[in-house]
Design a protein around this nucleic acid. Structure first.
Length: 573
RNA sequence: GUCGCAAUAGCUCAGCUGGAUAGAGCAACGGUCUUCUAAACCGUAGGUCGAGGGUUCGAAUCUCUCUUGCGACACCA
């Protein structure tokens, strides 16, 4: 682990600034104090790092402007291009040639590994994600859990953790009694085989329509679920079949999104592990009877009691989740245990964590709910039963179609059009989902999703494709990692953005926020596009190889940033 | 009702641990393709940062109250 790989070239310069200031201050502030005050100026004409002197005013009994001037006079500036005093600020300008050479060398040497760190120490991090329900279509809500979870897994790996992506399928519960009942009444094998999920959900919806007038349907459904739990061959066979055909359809979507899972331990997987959970709770004297049900009191945590067993003795969601957490604790000894689940379940996860802590589960403190905002249509919640639903497959299809049209118009001679259209269309949807803070709610408007201009996935992909295009044209020029001194002021913002990447990777991991990466990708693409528009890169002069090194570095980091988001980066589009 | 989250330009959102004239993208208007892909670039216009107090040299950022919206509040997941 070299310091370069750890914090990047940017950290080296922060250290230089800090050292220079500490020396000039005659030890009146510690290095940590100085470091904490450093900030990034808003515009590059104010330098690359700034030090405000307001806080020193009291300490030194001087006006901030005076302090800044005095410091500047005493400062050893050999490491910098210049240091300017602007009012109460000390603005440091880096030595562009040296900084760019260091940055480009670091990126080109590391390649896709640039920004990799070992902070996670290879610790296991199970991630509960995606989790669609069997026999129900995947909606935009599942998209969020899937792509956020997937990106977080990539980010964790980049930070040295070992994520385990677990698709916690909703493959058990009373709804299967209803589904079997409905299928036996109105369904047939041929129809389901033709269009599995749509047919199954049609039966399910019809069941809920008809049971309003025919409550006896619910009795039949309960009986079928009882049979299923008892291992009845017919019930089990149907359940297995529904699960199988549903998974096949889900896998089509996962394939399109490029998401792979490590395990598919759905709710059914934990069925035979519930008795132990109840026994453990009893042994620890945590179960209390309340209104006929078994609950765990959580007043100590200032939370409502957690209902573990219904009054009829049946298990609940939390019972299965405790079993899940216990299983993960024993199997993985997680250093983090993540649940990428909608923010409407925040309170529930507080309860789950509290119960696990009461039980003394070792990894309980590491449990972390990673919430994301609700998707609504016209401000209303989605629900399968009411038919208020946005089909994920449809949205992806629309987006790919639009990408095809776009290619037909803008790059009709492109070789692998269909492949690229998929990468761009799907990339737009995925990037769009990850671009903003994950806890923001989204009121779904299809037209808003299908945007390829401005701050979008295709914008970043396009910047990458342009960079690759230049590199193809310059294939004969030797781009080495060494001695790439670039003094072009237009390239400067791009160089600095490149140097930021390792910090961005850490921040995204600390906050479990893919949007940190997405925003960075936009920023880098934007500075590069600006540079591209104003500078002629393929001019045969002394700095040609240095410019190409910059282009190569940009392409590498853009591709890597997109990869962390789970978005493809085509070389041409 | 209680608890949680949010409120920034017409729309969608940034704004890092409080710091130098509040930023971007869409939409609107006006420019830039004989030269590395115009899915791009440049410019114009657009804001009492929901309201009011407090802390501070300094508040969109911290704190309190209020308003509005969304969510959660035991036998669903």
């Amino acid at each position: 682990m070299s310091p370069l790989n750890q914090g990047g070239i940017q950290m080296d310069y922060k250290q230089k600034v800090t050292a220079a200031l500490v020396a000039a201050l005659d030890g009146q502030l510690t290095a940590e104090d100085v470091r904490a005050k450093l900030e990034r100026p808003k515009t590059s004409n104010k330098g690359d790092i700034a030090f405000p002197t307001f806080t020193l005013a009291k300490l030194l009994h001087q006006a901030p402007q005076q302090i800044a001037q005095n410091l500047a006079d005493k400062l050893d500036t050999t490491d910098f291009e210049k240091v300017e005093v602007v009012g109460p600020y000390l603005n440091f300008f880096f030595d562009k040639a040296g900084y760019s050479a260091d940055t480009l060398k670091t990126v080109l040497t590391a390649g896709a590994d640039y920004g990799q760190n070992q902070d996670g120490n290879n610790g296991n991090v199970p991630i509960d994600m995606s989790s669609p329900n069997i026999a129900k279509p995947m909606s935009m809500g599942h998209l969020r859990s899937t792509v956020i979870g997937n990106s977080i897994a990539n980010i964790l790996t980049k930070n040295g953790y070992h994520p385990i992506k677990d698709n916690h399928l909703g493959d058990w519960g009373t709804q299967f009694g209803k589904l079997i009942t409905a299928y036996k009444l109105w369904g047939n094998e041929a129809d389901v085989k033709k269009d599995p999920i749509n047919k199954l959900v049609e039966y399910y919806v019809r069941f809920h329509k008809e049971d309003v007038d025919k409550p006896e349907l619910d009795d039949i459904a309960r009986e079928w679920f009882r049979k299923l739990e008892a291992g009845d061959p017919e019930a089990h066979k149907l359940w297995e079949w529904f699960r199988e055909v549903s998974l096949q359809e889900f896998n089509d979507v996962y394939k399109e999104l490029g998401v792979k899972f490590d395990t598919y331990n759905g709710e059914a997987f934990y069925n035979d592990k519930l008795a132990e959970v109840v026994q453990l709770l009893k042994d620890k004297h945590l179960l209390v009877e309340s209104q006929g049900a078994q609950v765990v009191d959580l007043s100590k945590y200032d939370l409502n009691p957690a209902l573990i067993l219904k009054s009829d003795g049946a298990s609940l969601y939390i019972t299965r989740d405790i079993a899940t957490a216990l299983y993960r604790d024993r199997t993985y000894s997680p250093v983090k245990n993540l649940y990428v689940v909608g923010s409407e379940q925040t309170y529930y996860f507080k309860q789950l964590k509290a119960v696990l802590e009461e039980m003394g589960v070792k990894s309980a403190p590491n449990l972390q709910h990673v919430p994301f905002g609700l998707i609504t249509v016209d401000g209303k919640k989605l629900s399968t039963r009411s038919g208020r639903i946005i089909l994920l497959a449809k949205v992806l299809e629309e987006s790919v179609k639009l990408a095809q049209e776009e290619i037909a118009e803008k790059n009709p001679t492109l070789a692998n059009k269909d492949e690229v259209a998929k990468q761009v269309g799907v990339g737009a949807i995925v990037f769009g989902d990850l671009k903003n803070e994950r806890t923001n709610n989204i009121d779904f408007v299809l037209a808003d999703q299908l945007k390829f201009e401005g701050e979008t996935g295709p914008y970043v992909q396009y910047a990458h494709a342009r960079a690759e295009s230049i590199l193809r044209k310059a294939a004969h020029v030797d781009v080495t990692a060494d001695a790439n001194q670039l003094t072009d002021p237009l390239a400067w913002d791009t160089i600095k953005a490149l140097a930021d990447f390792p910090q961005i990777v850490k921040m995204a991991c600390d906050e479990l926020e893919p949007s940190v990466i997405a925003k960075y990708a936009i920023r880098l693409a934007k500075t590069f596009n600006k540079y591209y528009a104003h500078a002629k890169i393929l001019t045969d002069d002394a700095e040609l190889s240095a410019r190409l090194a910059l282009v190569k570095a940009v392409s590498t980091v853009l591709k890597e940033a997109l990869r962390l988001l789970g978005v493809q980066a085509p070389d041409e589009m």
